[in-house]
Amino acid sequence: MTSLLTDTRVVFSRELRPVVRDPFSVIFSMVQPLFFLGLFAPLLPGDGSLQWFVPGIIVMSCLFGSSMTGSNLLFEIQTGSHERMLVTPLRRPALLIGRALKEIVPMLAQAVLIVAVCIPFGFRLHLGGALLGLLILAGFCIGLGALSYTLALASKNTEWLFWTVQQTLLFPLLLLAGVLLPLDDGPGWLQALSKINPMTYVVNAERALFNGEVLTRHTLAGLVAAVLVGALGLFVGVRAMQRSD
C-alpha cells in the first residue's frame, strides 16, 4: 500500500531523474554564481576574502536554483503532465514535498563544486562546520523551492507573473543578505531591511560554520531562519497544491 512517504519518494525520484541523467544541468545553473565568484572575490580586500565570500556564494547558488525551480512545474502545468499526476492516487502534499526535497540535491552538488573550485585558490574548508552549514541550507532551499512552486501554481494562467515576481525578489534578497558586499557600513534603513531578510541569518550562519565557528549565535539564528522559511514554504505550498486543478 502507498503512504505519504512512499508517494513523496515517487515524486522525489521522478524529479531527480532528469538531474541524474543530465548532470550538466546542475553545472549550467552554476555559471552565474561562479561568475560572481570570479569577478567579485578579487575586488574584496584582505587575505580572508575567500573565507568570507565563498559561503555567501553557496547560499546564492541555492537561491538562484531553488527560486527558479517552479518554472519546471509551470512548464508541466502547461504541457499537461502536471494534470496527469493529479489524476493519479499520489497524495497532493507529496506532489509538493517530493519536489521541494529534490532541491537539496543540486544544492549539495553545487556547494561541493564551488568549494572544490576554491580550494586551489586558498580556501580553507572546516568540514564539520560546513556539513552543519549545509544542513541548515537544506532547510532554507526546501522552503525556497516550495515557495517557487507555490508561485508557479499561482501563475498557471499568467506565465509572466512567475518570472516578474521571481526576478523582482531575487536581487533585493541577495543584496540585502550582504552576499556580495557587507552591509555593516550601510545606512540604517538598509540595515533594517537586512534584518528582516531571513536569508541574512542563513548567510551569516554559513560564514561562521564554514570557518569552523560552530557554537555561535549565528548558527542558532541561521537554523531558526532556515526552519521558518522551510516550514512556511511547505505550508503554503501544500495548500496551493491541494487546490491545484
Partner: peptide, 25 residues
C-alpha cells in the same frame, strides 16, 4: 489520458512509465 502531454518533457519515456506505475503503488 488528457488532451495535453502526460509525459514530462525533460524525462525519458521509460522513466515516466515507471514513475507512473509507482504512482499507482
Amino acid at each position: 489520458i488528457g488532451q495535453g502531454n502526460g509525459a514530462g518533457h525533460s524525462q525519458r519515456g521509460r522513466d515516466e512509465l515507471i514513475s507512473q506505475g509507482r504512482a499507482y503503488g
